[in-house]
Amino acid sequence: MTPSISTQVQLVARPHGWPTREDFRTVAVELPPLGPGQVRVENAFVSVDPYMRGRMNDQKSYTPPFALGETMTGGAIGTVVASTADGYAVGDVVLHQLGWRDVAQGDAAGFRVVPALPGVPLSAYLGVLGMTGYTAYVGLTQIAPVAAGETVFISGAAGAVGTAAGQIARLLGASRVVGSAGSAEKVALLTDRYGFDAALDYKQAPVRAQLPALVPEGVDVYFDNVGGDHLEAALDVMNRGGRVALCGAIAGYNATGRTPGPDNMATIITQGLTLRGFTLGDHLQHYGQFTTDMSAWFQAGRIVFDETVVDGIDHAVDAFLDLLRGANIGKMVVRTTPGS
């Protein structure tokens, strides 16, 4: 029998500082019968991501904020359980943006059929084979292109984007890859599993004090997921003509006041640096090449990935709050269908 009740998570209050469980509610929604050209999907995994914190604020950004009292959205992957749309059969695996729920329904145009690869969990399409991996790829091929023999520094390197970026930088020819993380365990993971040459624990001492010793020949490309003190430290050691891909600013996502900025901005002028921010919506034209390159790297065993999996849509908020506090290794996903 096709499920007709969807358990969904809604935002009911805009967080001030760190979000709390009281800012959300979980509701049961009865789905209407399928209209023409629609599909119903039982989600296997839904994604929780740092950018979602910004959408909880009522402010102008590259994407509209979540509306209060409505179900939030985000990446998800699942299996079609009912369809009135041509080209979408029961059993097809589809990617879509109706996350934060266990059953999704909508016009077929919002769902994309993907192949189920043997031995690869569906959740990988939300991570290294999906938007997470694509973010790292765009940052290092289009925004701050890496050339052979260069040194790359990646902040927030133990997260989903950071771990992908470190490996992609190496595959693009970087001779030295350095990262930052928030624990000794994560630092070891970066060097032992992901192939980083060195990494620092930003909780042990200021990044500005630790980084120079790890990059004795300077940094050519900086992939920034953090901002704040990490950006400041990177500017100190950038080589002339260096490039910076500004992907995220985790340091300020839960701040209640202004996040301090770098005090060394003149370096941008004196070193002839290029700093460029980006979001994926402006770079979708490269997705085909990403798919080709990443699939080849993945199948050749040149890419590894980790996931932190939380079970149950009822625990999606817990997963998101843990993500913001750095409790994840690699991609954080919520498994909404047991056994997926």
Results as ranks from 00 to 15, higher is better:
Val39His: 10
Met294Glu: 13
Thr63Trp: 00
Gly91Val: 02
Glu217Thr: 14
Gln210Gly: 04
Phe66Asp: 08
Val41His: 11
Asp58Gly: 11
Gln289Tyr: 02
Val310Leu: 00
Leu284Cys: 05
Gln59Phe: 09
Ile313Lys: 01
Cys247Asp: 12
Leu129Met: 11
Tyr125Cys: 04
Pro50Phe: 05
Ser175Gln: 13
Asn254Lys: 05
Gly257Thr: 15
Gly272Ala: 04
Tyr287Asn: 11
Ser4Thr: 15
Leu246Gly: 02
Gln38Ala: 13
Glu42Ile: 03
Thr274Val: 08
Gln167Lys: 09
Leu324Lys: 03
Pro121His: 05
Leu95Asn: 13
Leu211His: 01
Pro212Glu: 07
Leu98Cys: 02
Gly257Phe: 07
Met56Glu: 11
Met52Ser: 07
Val103Gln: 10
Ala198Leu: 11
Gly228Thr: 01
Thr135Gly: 11
His96Pro: 08
Gly35His: 02
Leu321Lys: 04
Arg176Tyr: 09
Leu129Ile: 03
Gly166Tyr: 08
Tyr51Gly: 00
Ser83Ala: 04
Thr291Trp: 03
Gly127Ile: 04
Gly74Ser: 15
Gly133Ser: 01
Leu31Trp: 03
Asp306His: 09
Gly87Ala: 06
Arg112His: 14
Glu232Lys: 07
Phe66Gln: 03
Val93His: 12
His16Asp: 15
Thr132Asp: 10
Val177Met: 11
Leu235Arg: 02
Leu273Met: 07
Gly130Asp: 06
Gly241Arg: 05
Asp58Ile: 05
Phe305Val: 01
Val215His: 08
Gly312Glu: 04
Thr163Trp: 04
Gly218Glu: 10
Gly248Ile: 02
Ile5Asn: 13
Pro216Gln: 08
Ala67Lys: 13
Pro36Glu: 15
Asn225Leu: 07
Asp224Leu: 05
Ala251Pro: 08
Val219Gln: 12
Val12Ala: 07
Val161Met: 05
Ala160Val: 06
Leu284Pro: 04
Leu34His: 12
Gly173Leu: 07
His283Cys: 05
Ala136Trp: 00
Val244Leu: 14
Tyr51Pro: 15
Arg112Ile: 07
Ala209Arg: 09
Val221Met: 09
Leu280Glu: 09
Val103Cys: 14
Met238Gln: 09
Gln8Trp: 00
Leu321Val: 03
Ile143His: 12
Leu321Ala: 03
Ala165Tyr: 07
